[in-house]
Simulated scan of single mutants.
Amino acid sequence: MRRTRPRALPLAVLLAGLALAALPAAAQSTQGGAPPYEADLLHLAEILGALHYLRPLCGAAETTRWRDEMQGLLEVEAPSGERRGQLTGAFNTGYESYRQVYRNCTPSAELASQRYLEAGTKLARDVATRYGSN
């Protein structure tokens, strides 16, 4: 059986899941100023960081794609300084956690990449479904 490379998430899927800026401000904020989907957003940022390291390591021609996706997330969310730092930190954690372990593409790295692609797609869709429509 021939192994196929995982397909990258379409930009539209991620950004559609994150196009929450269109929600009324009251629907976005909870106490403390963070939106109710903050934990999901932090997890997605970590996934993007992991993909930014893993996908090119395993031969995908996506040298800046996942960092660009993270930049798009930051532009859509337009977070405050502290929130921006948390989101950026989550991205960096995802990247660093794999950079410290993998120097070459291995079957385990490919599997992690595939799982993150699937998890990121599901998470973006879930957030869009839960918070993106009125």
Rank of each mutant, 00 (worst) to 15 (best):
E110T: 13
D68W: 05
A26Q: 09
A124K: 01
G120H: 02
R103I: 11
A78D: 13
A109M: 03
C58N: 03
T121E: 15
A90E: 04
Y102P: 08
L74C: 02
R103F: 06
R67Y: 11
A61K: 10
L20S: 00
R55M: 08
R130E: 07
G59C: 02
A16M: 07
M1P: 07
E38G: 10
G17V: 07
P6M: 02
G94S: 02
L15I: 12
G32Y: 00
T64K: 09
R67F: 13
E82Q: 14
R5Q: 05
L123K: 02
R67M: 11
T129A: 15
D40H: 08
G94Q: 02
T121W: 06
M70T: 14
L20V: 11
I47V: 15
A8H: 15
E110R: 09
S108A: 11
C105E: 01
L74P: 10
L74V: 06
G132C: 00
P6T: 12
L87I: 05
E46D: 13
S80Q: 04
G49F: 00
A19C: 15
R7D: 15
G120A: 08
A25L: 14
W66A: 15
L20Y: 03
A25P: 11
P10S: 12
E62Y: 06
E96G: 10
P79S: 00
G59F: 01
Y116M: 13
R115V: 12
A8C: 14
Q86S: 09
